[in-house]
Simulated scan of single mutants.
Amino acid sequence: MSDNRVENLNIESNTVLVTPDQLKTKLPLSESATATVMEGRQVIKNILKGEDKRLFVVVGPCSIHDTKAAIEYGQKLKQLAAQVQDTLYLVMRVYFEKPRTTVGWKGLINDPHMNDSFEIEEGLHIGRELLIQLSEAGLPLATEALDPISPQYLQDLISWSAIGARTTESQTHREMSSGLSGAVGFKNGTDGGLTVAINALESVSHPHNFLGINEEGQCSIVRTKGNKYGHVVLRGGNGKPNYDSVNVAVCEQTLDKAGLKKNVMIDCSHANSNKDPALQPLVMENVTNQIIDGNKSIIGLMVESNLGWGNQKMTADPSDLQYGVSITDACIDWDTTEKTLLDMHNKLKVVLPTR
C-alpha cells in the first residue's frame, strides 16, 4: 500500500496503457508484412557478415510527424529501391522518438497531435499502423530505439535499429539492444570519440538480465541471449566530421584492437554534415570514392531525406505546416535523394561485387 506522504510526490497521474499483446491483436502483422521484416533483417545481417556485398542505406525523414507524407515517401523509395537493388539495399528511416537535450517535441508516439496533449496510446496505434502499411508495401524499416518500453509494441516491424549518440553510453539501452531481434548500430559519442560505441558493442553481444515488460504489459525480468549484429555508426562530434578515410581507418584499427568485426556505417547527417543538408550528398560522394579506392569496412549509410528540402518550425496549428518538410533536423529533398543514390549505384555496381 502506498504512503502518499513519501511516495509519488511529483507524479500528477498514472494512466493504464494498452498492453503490447492488445495492440498487436488490434493491429496484427499480415503475412506480407512479416515476410518483409524477416527478409530485411536477414539481408542486413548478411551484409554485416560479408556474405552480401551490397551496402544498406537507412534513408528517410529525420522524424515522422505526418503519416500521409510518410506513405508518399515510402512509395517513392520503393520504386527507387528496385532501380538500385543490385548495389544498395534501401531501408526506410521511420523515427517516432526524438531525444531532447532539454525540452521540445519528443516524436509521434509521445505527442502525435503536436499540441502537448501527449496522447501516447494513440501515438502507439498511429505508429504501428504506419509501420504495417509500409511493411506491406515491401519496405524494410529502421528506427531509433529510445524508450525501453516501446520495443515490445513496435519492434516486430523493425529490420534495423539505431542507438543514438546520447544513449550509446546508457546501460539501459545496451541491455535493451542485446534483446532486439534485428541488427543495431551504435553511434559514436557526441564528442566524436569511439570509446562509448566500442564499449557498447562489447556489451550488446553478451546476455543481460534487466527489468522490463512482457507481452501482457506486466513488469518482468527480461533475460536476453545477446545481439551478435551490433556495429558502429560514425556521425561526427563537437562540430567535426569523422567520415573521411583517416577517421574510418582509425575506427577500423580500434575495432580490430577490441577484437570486433570491422563494420562501419557512416551517418551522412549530424556533425558529419554540420547539420547542413546540402553537405549530405558530398559525404555520400566521399564514401563512394573510399569504396572505389578499396575500402572494405564501410557497410552502410544513414541519410536524412524527405519529400521537401530543409526543415520548418513547429506552429501552433499543425495544419499550417508545409507538407513533406521536416519539423526536426533539416533533410535533403526527394529529387536530391534520388539523384545521389542513383549516382552512387552507378559508380559502385562494378566495384561492390569484387570487394
Rank of each mutant, 00 (worst) to 15 (best):
N14Y: 14
V94D: 01
C251M: 13
W105V: 09
E7F: 14
I158H: 04
N110V: 07
V6M: 10
G74H: 02
K106P: 08
G74T: 01
S245G: 05
P112V: 12
A137G: 14
S205N: 12
N115L: 07
H231G: 06
G294N: 11
W309N: 13
K24A: 14
Y153F: 13
T315N: 12
N10I: 14
G308L: 12
G237T: 11
K275G: 04
A200I: 07
K225T: 15
P140Y: 04
V196A: 14
P148W: 05
N311M: 01
Q79Y: 04
I44V: 13
H270E: 09
K49M: 14
I266S: 03
V222K: 00
G74E: 02
G237D: 10
K106E: 12
G164F: 04
S135T: 09
D267W: 02
S2R: 12
R128D: 02
A35W: 03
F56V: 11
T288V: 05
S13N: 13
G104Q: 11
L9M: 12
T168M: 06
Q79T: 14
V204R: 09
E7H: 15
V16C: 06
L141Y: 05
M114Y: 03
I44E: 06
W160N: 05
L201R: 04
V196K: 08
K26R: 15
T36V: 02
N247M: 12
T354S: 11
K24Q: 14
H206A: 15
D256E: 15
L27N: 04
L124N: 02
L211N: 08
L23K: 01
K262I: 07
Q218E: 14
D267I: 07
K106Y: 04
E338M: 07
L130V: 13
I149W: 05
C268N: 06
G239S: 11
A142L: 12
G237S: 06
D21Q: 15
D116S: 13
Q290S: 06
A145M: 13
D191H: 00
A69L: 07
Q218M: 13
D156H: 01
M38Y: 10
P241R: 05
K68C: 00
W334C: 08
G60W: 06
H231F: 09
H231E: 01
P207D: 13
N227C: 09
Q133W: 00
L279E: 15
T328K: 02
V303F: 09
Y153L: 05
L131D: 00
A197V: 01
A316I: 10
L88K: 00
